[in-house]
Simulated assay, not measured.
Amino acid sequence: MATDILVLNGPNLNLLGKRQPEIYGHETIADVERSCRSVAREYGLTIDFRQSNDEAQLIDWIHQARDQHASIVINPAGYSHTSVALMDALSAFPGHIIEVHISNIHRRESFRHLSYVSKVATGVICGLGTAGYHLAVHHLACHLKK
């Protein structure tokens, strides 16, 4: 495996820290990446951290992950609620998948309550801010080190 954990971020997460900080906080995507890498290093693992606003790009990365990564952390953002294609791509991934949402999607607009990704994820973390990424990487690291 080229890297142990692939961390994927969907649309608009490149604006983290700038877009709706009252919902998503003030940390940037670079801050989240540093945190994920730090946790992985504690376990001697590697992270491949990516963000795209393009659904097709995310799907291509998931397909590639089958041969390159042991686990996936994904914040599909708005694609959570709309993308059967993203769900289908993830369902073909053989490793653990942790879905992360910075906000609690179940306390927000009703259209956000459904996540297609949740249907294929090993676990879901939502509403814990960017700490959810940290927890996801920690969980996967413990799983991979067994």
Rank of each mutant, 00 (worst) to 15 (best):
E22R: 11
H81S: 12
Y116H: 14
G123E: 07
Y133V: 02
Y43I: 07
Y79P: 00
R107L: 15
V84R: 12
V117Q: 00
A92G: 02
Y43K: 10
V100T: 00
L135F: 15
G44R: 11
T82W: 06
Y24T: 07
V7T: 07
E55I: 08
S103D: 04
K146R: 14
V39P: 05
D67R: 12
I125W: 00
N9A: 08
H101L: 07
V137W: 03
I62Q: 01
R112N: 08
A40I: 10
P21M: 09
L8E: 01
A136E: 03
A70S: 15
I97E: 01
Q68I: 00
A131E: 13
I105Y: 04
R108L: 03
A131G: 10
Y116N: 06
A136D: 04
L15D: 02
K119I: 02
Q64R: 13
I5E: 09
S38H: 13
T3L: 05
L135A: 12
G127Y: 09
H81C: 09
T130H: 05
D88W: 03
G17D: 06
A56F: 12
T3S: 14
F93M: 02
I23F: 05
V32E: 03
A40M: 08
I102S: 07
P11K: 08
I59N: 05
L45D: 05
V100E: 00
S91G: 03
C126L: 14
L6R: 08
L128R: 14
A121L: 03
K18G: 00
Q20S: 12
I97A: 06
A77S: 15
H134V: 15
V73C: 04
D4T: 01
I125E: 01
D67Q: 14
G78W: 06
R112K: 11
Y133Q: 03
N14M: 02
V117E: 05
R66W: 01
C126Y: 08
V32C: 10
S52L: 13
L90C: 06
E42D: 15
V137L: 07
P21E: 04
C126Q: 15
I102P: 04
H69K: 09
S118R: 08
H26P: 00
A136L: 10
R37M: 09
R41I: 09
H106P: 00
H106Q: 15
G123A: 15
D88A: 10
R19F: 07
Q57I: 14
V100K: 00
A65V: 05
A131Y: 13
H63Q: 15
V39A: 05
R19L: 13
I102L: 15
T130G: 01
Y24A: 05
H69V: 04
Y24G: 06
W61P: 01
L45E: 11
H143R: 13
I59T: 04
E109C: 03
A56R: 10
V32T: 12
V84H: 13
A40W: 09
I105W: 06
V124Q: 00
V137F: 05
Y43S: 11
S83D: 08
D54W: 10
V73T: 06
S103V: 01
